[in-house]
Simulated assay, not measured.
Amino acid sequence: MPFTVTITFKDSPNEERWRFTVRSVTCGKPLDSAVVAYAAESVGAPTPTPTPEAGKQFCVVAMDALNVGNGEAVWNTDNTVSLNVGDTRYSQSQKDSDYASDYAQYFNSKGQVGPTFGLNPGSRGPVHGIFQIPTGQQPTSVWVTSSTAITTIDGVQPGYLVLLK
């Protein structure tokens, strides 16, 4: 089910509006082999196969993003999305953000430009978040903030909660 988030900026009167649809949340599987191969090829050197931290599993959140604002906008899952198991919130580590960037680069190479590289009003594209949660656990929700960070000095920022089945 699509939902709209308006992202506001504390230092600017400008805002961005996005309509997101969570397409899937896949946990316990390796990262997409085509993405991993593309990332290794772009570096031009063999790279180790991504593995989650000990006792954890990868979860890939795949979303569709549509810019419903009135100007070009850039957006990604860094510090703006969390994957939740009950009341425990997981955000992307720096390494997870790198993996999400690999997904963006891969889909861009296939002609599916996502919000990571900027989308004009009315344009849509794929966006992925990579998270690590404890092995055997299942996520219960995804939080998409309407700020530029999940938490600030004022606490958890407003946003949209997507309950997972």
Score class of each variant (00 low, 15 high):
Gln57Leu: 04
Val60Ala: 01
Val60Gln: 01
Val60Ser: 01
Val61Phe: 14
Ala62Lys: 11
Met63Val: 09
Asp64Thr: 02
Asp64Asn: 02
Asp64Gly: 02
Ala65Phe: 00
Ala65Val: 01
Val68Tyr: 08
Val68Thr: 15
Gly69Leu: 07
Asn70Gln: 15
Gly71Met: 07
Gly71Leu: 03
Glu72Ala: 09
Glu72Lys: 13
Ala73Ser: 14
Val74Glu: 15
Val74Tyr: 13
Val74Ser: 15
Trp75Ala: 06
Trp75Gly: 01
Trp75Leu: 09
Trp75Thr: 09
Trp75Cys: 06
Asn76His: 05
Asn76Gln: 11
Thr77Ile: 04
Thr77Lys: 01
Asp78Glu: 14
Asp78Arg: 15
Asp78Pro: 00
Val81Trp: 12
Val81Ile: 08
Val81Tyr: 10
Leu83Cys: 09
Asn84Met: 00
Asn84Gln: 05
Asn84Lys: 05
Val85Gly: 08
Val85Asp: 08
Gly86Ile: 05
Gly86Pro: 11
Asp87Asn: 13
Thr88Ile: 15
Arg89Ser: 13
Arg89Ala: 14
Arg89Asn: 12
Arg89Pro: 02
Gln92Arg: 03
Gln92Met: 14
Gln92Asp: 01
Ser93Leu: 11
Ser93Glu: 08
Gln94Glu: 10
Gln94Arg: 08
Asp96Tyr: 02
Ser97Asn: 10
Asp98Tyr: 09
Tyr99Leu: 11
Ala100Gln: 03
Ala100Gly: 02
Ser101Val: 09
Ser101His: 10
Tyr103Met: 04
Tyr103Thr: 07
Tyr103Ile: 06
Ala104Cys: 03
Ala104Ser: 06
Tyr106Phe: 15
Tyr106Ile: 06
Tyr106Ala: 01
Ser109Gly: 12
Ser109Asp: 07
Ser109Asn: 11
Ser109Pro: 15
Lys110Glu: 05
Gly111Arg: 08
Gln112Ile: 03
Gln112Val: 03
Gln112Met: 08
Val113Gly: 02
Pro115Thr: 13
Pro115Trp: 05
Thr116Glu: 04
Thr116Leu: 09
Thr116Val: 10
